[in-house]
């Protein structure tokens, strides 16, 4: 029975792979802050196509709001920035495997996520809102009722996973990997709305005049923060101080206006 033997071998290989992953994870590493200082560079994970947060220009250099923050941070640490362009899972895994020191990539923090990586204080707070075709009957999210018979496009595993069912318990959740796919689904009529970042929606409406609009009301509040590996208290201390002063000095507001074209909403929450 060669097939049974093949199966056994595959299982053995899997077990071995697991053992290796678990073993290497326990290896000792010097503090991340010390590594950054010794190396003289700050390695930053960024996303390739999320303008105006970040995008890779034809010359290969990234640019955008998140990129300017990264450059400012490297400046403050007196080291050179080194950008590592990655994807959605890579934002997290590259921190966990120490391929990068920090992630600055429209990263929404929450308690569950902070159990695997650390987040700084937020440098931006956005709301999640509903984008619909201009011809949609609803004016506000509440006009959609329980959401029965309504399809909503969301980003897989994002803030909307909880926010949309909370607002529209009977709506059908339609999951996509990228915002571009969500947009295609909305424009082709495969979904009735897409739940996305207010800033993204605002830009999308501007890019397609007369086709799209946002419904009144917000679905969720998202705190955007810098991500770093868990367990490095020194780096966390330094990054938090950087974010606090970056926010307080007004530099953040200036940088935001440069990339988004409108004033930055308040970062503090109303309790």
């Amino acid at each position: 029975m060669s097939s049974r033997r093949t199966m056994l071998r595959c299982l053995l290989a899997c077990t071995a792979a697991l053992a290796i992953t678990a073993g290497s994870a326990r290896a000792q590493t010097p503090s991340v802050l010390q590594q950054i200082i010794s190396r003289g560079t700050l390695r930053i994970a960024v996303l390739p196509s999320l303008p105006p947060y970040s995008k890779v220009t034809p010359s290969g250099d990234p640019e955008g709001y998140d990129i300017d923050i990264a450059k400012r941070l490297a400046d403050a640490l007196k080291v050179k920035p080194e950008f590592v362009v990655t994807d959605i899972p890579g934002r997290v895994t590259s921190l966990q495997t120490h391929k990068v020191d920090v992630t600055i990539a429209d990263f929404t923090r929450n308690v569950e996520r902070s159990m695997t990586i650390a987040f700084t204080d937020p440098y931006l707070v956005t709301t999640m809102r509903m984008l619909v075709l201009d011809g949609n009957k609803a004016r506000a999210i509440t006009d959609m009722g329980t959401g029965e018979g309504i399809k909503i496009a969301i980003s897989r595993g994002g803030t909307a996973e909880r926010a949309v069912p909370a607002a529209l318990p009977k709506a059908t959740i339609t999951r996509f990997n990228t915002q571009a796919d969500e947009m295609s689904a909305l424009l082709s009529g495969q979904v009735d709305g897409m739940a996305e970042d207010d800033f993204y929606n605002t830009q999308a409406i501007k890019d397609r005049p007369g086709k799209l609009r946002q419904l009144d009301g917000s679905l969720a509040r998202a705190e955007i923060a810098i991500g770093m590996p868990a367990g490095d208290a020194d780096l966390h201390r330094v990054l938090n101080l950087f974010v606090e002063q970056f926010n307080a000095s007004g530099d953040n507001a200036t940088m935001f206006k440069k990339w988004f074209g409108f004033d930055q909403p308040a970062i503090t929450a109303h309790f």
């Binding site: 792979a17 992953t21 899972p89 997290v92 895994t93 966990q96 496009a153 980003s155 595993g157 339609t174």
Partner: peptide, 28 residues
């Protein structure tokens, strides 16, 4: 098929990975 919103195994992997940030576990 996850690219066109079918909630099959690859979709589960991406969804749970992005929700919990436990990508290694979900990949395996």
């Amino acid at each position: 098929a996850s690219a066109i919103a079918v909630d099959e195994v690859a979709s589960w992997m991406e969804t749970v990975g992005s929700t919990s940030f436990r990508f290694f576990e979900t990949f395996v």
